[in-house]
C-alpha cells in the first residue's frame, strides 16, 4: 500500500468537495429557479466532462496551463509557477471534471422544491436567508449529500486527466489510481490489488450513501432540521 498516494488521494477528494460544493450550490440553485439566459447551453457545458474522454480534457488543460500559454503564463507570473505537474493543477482539473457530478443532484433537489413552498415561507415572514437555512437546505439535503458522495468517489478514481496534467510525481500528483497503474507496470500485482480493493470499498460506500438518501428523499425524511 502506497500510503503517500492514499493520503494524497484523500486530500485531493476533500479539497475538490470543499471548493466545488459552494460553487455547485450557487450554479444549481440559479439553474433551478432563476431565468438564466442560454440555460440549456450552460447545462450542456456543465455536462460536457461526462462525455468528453478524460485524456482529451487533460490534454487541453495541459496545453492551457503550460507556462508557454496565455493562461499558464499569467498564472506563472502571479504565483511563480504554472499549474502543470503540481497538486494545484490536478485539483483544478478535478474541479472541472466533477462539475456535473456536483451540480446535477443539487439542481434536481432544488427543482423538486415547489415554488409555492418558498413563497409560503416568505409570506410567513421568513427572510430569504432564513428560507434558505430552514426550508431550502433541509429539503435539498439528500441532493447535496449525493453530490458530496459522487464527487468524492469520482475524484478517488480519476486517472486520465490527472496523468496528463500531473504525471506521476510522488507526494505531489501520484494519486492511488496512478499508483495502481505504476505498480501494474512494474508487475507488482499484489500491491495493485490492495489499492484497488481500497478504491472498490470507497466506491461501494459512496453508492450506498447515495442510494439510501435517494430512497429517503421519497418520504421526505432526513436528519436535518
Amino acid at each position: 500500500m502506497d500510503w503517500q498516494a492514499f493520503s494524497l488521494t484523500l486530500q485531493l477528494a476533500a479539497w475538490t468537495v470543499l471548493f466545488l460544493l459552494p460553487c455547485a450550490m450557487l450554479i444549481a440553485r440559479a439553474l433551478a429557479w432563476r431565468r438564466v439566459p442560454m440555460k440549456s447551453g450552460i447545462e450542456a457545458l456543465i455536462m460536457l466532462p461526462l462525455v468528453l474522454p478524460p485524456t482529451v480534457l487533460g490534454f487541453y488543460l495541459l496545453v492551457a496551463f503550460s507556462p508557454q500559454s496565455a493562461i499558464g503564463g499569467t498564472i506563472k507570473s502571479i504565483f511563480g509557477s504554472a499549474p502543470v505537474f503540481s497538486f494545484t493543477g490536478i485539483l483544478i482539473a478535478s474541479l472541472i471534471v466533477n462539475l456535473p457530478f456536483a451540480v446535477q443532484p443539487i439542481q434536481r433537489a432544488f427543482e423538486s422544491i415547489p415554488r409555492n413552498v418558498r413563497e409560503a415561507a416568505f409570506v410567513s415572514g421568513l427572510s430569504p436567508w432564513q428560507t434558505m437555512r430552514r426550508i431550502e437546505l433541509p429539503l435539498a439535503w439528500p441532493g447535496i449529500v449525493s453530490a458530496i458522495a459522487l464527487t468524492f468517489a469520482h475524484t478517488l478514481g480519476e486517472f486520465g486527466v490527472i496523468l496528463l496534467i500531473g504525471g506521476s510525481i510522488p507526494g505531489e500528483t501520484r494519486v492511488l489510481s496512478i499508483a495502481i497503474y505504476d505498480r501494474v507496470q512494474a508487475f507488482d500485482i499484489a500491491g495493485a490489488g490492495v489499492m484497488s480493493a481500497a478504491l472498490l470499498g470507497f466506491s461501494l460506500l459512496s453508492i450506498a450513501i447515495v442510494h439510501t438518501l435517494a430512497r429517503r428523499r421519497g418520504t421526505g425524511a432526513h436528519g436535518f432540521q
Binding site: P114, N116, A120, V123, G125, L139, G220, H222, F224
Partner: peptide
C-alpha cells in the same frame, strides 16, 4: 406585509 395566505395546495413545509 403581514398577510395570512392559504395556498391552493396548502404549500406546507414537508420536512416539518
Amino acid at each position: 406585509r403581514r398577510v395570512g395566505l392559504v395556498f391552493q395546495d396548502y404549500a406546507l413545509f414537508p420536512h416539518l
